[in-house]
Design a protein around this nucleic acid. Structure first.
Lengths: 145, 145
DNA sequence: TATTGTTATACTCTATAACTATA
DNA sequence: TATAGTTATAGAGTATAACAATA
């Protein structure tokens, strides 16, 4: 979605939503560069981070965090389990829900990915000064929260 | 993708890309609210705006602006033509490409949508002061350009 | 040869709805 | 009744590849 030279973008240039979309696409390219060759996607990475930070989380809660339906959270979990990154454990108190946990291999893989993604995210953000980057994060938080 | 209370988002909260994604989802809801009941989507709205601002544009160039393949630009154009919002005109100099133009009905519909989308975008951005909003747009532009 | 539009096809992601087992 | 997970199915959006017409 690079800007096409000579094209008039009309009202789009006045929309905060469109500016955010452009910026998000640019940062998505950063993510893609950082995870090249692996079969990782933003939702998969997000899921791994959240499972890692919230051991024992249920699939439904994971789905809520990602903003997707339970059925989608299950497919995502299947992928993580199939790759040996996550395991489902029965919960003592509740026979319905699984508790999700990183495997040792998953924790190791996530550690590598996290470092790469964070480094590339920072590299792309380097067009801004450190103060500008913090200000941008603050404004985004204020907008969203 | 509303934040789930009590959940630890780990490294995600340190990623500019994730902050942008959250903000973009929030503004997408603004778009959705502004176009409720119409069969419009962000890509369709974007396409209409770009055709309106660049009369005679080709399908391929439209696709480039949207960051999608030619085949997708054609389906998008089919939708706009099918709704009577856009018409294809042969170009005098080049028998290969179509020139896309808004119909009077398309111009009228776009005018209404543009006003609604812009108003709702501003309304959601009202959590920021006018100065903050301008600063946010500036930072996003600096990041992307 | 290169470009534009078109067509056919396939893939990914997601939603919905119905089902089961547990609570 | 309500919730968690599962399964089946369908739809939207997109990409790729091949083709015809035109440059």
């Amino acid at each position: 979605m690079t800007r096409v030279a000579g094209l008039d973008y009309g009202v789009l240039d006045q929309l905060l939503g469109y500016s955010l979309r452009r910026a998000q696409v640019a940062l998505f390219l950063a993510f893609h560069a950082a995870t090249r060759g692996q079969h990782i996607t933003p939702p998969r990475f997000t899921a791994l981070v959240i499972v890692g930070a919230n051991p024992g989380i249920s699939q439904s809660t994971l789905g809520s965090a990602l903003g997707i339906a339970r059925s989608g959270a299950m497919l995502l979990t299947n992928w993580m389990v199939g790759r040996g990154l996550v395991e489902r454990r029965r919960r003592p108190g509740d026979g319905r829900a699984w508790g999700l946990h990183l495997t040792p291999r998953g924790a190791q893989a996530l550690g590598r990915m996290r470092a790469a993604v964070l480094a590339e995210d920072r590299r792309r953000a380097a067009k801004l000064s450190a103060a500008e980057r913090r200000e941008l994060m603050r404004l985004l938080e204020k907008l969203t929260g």
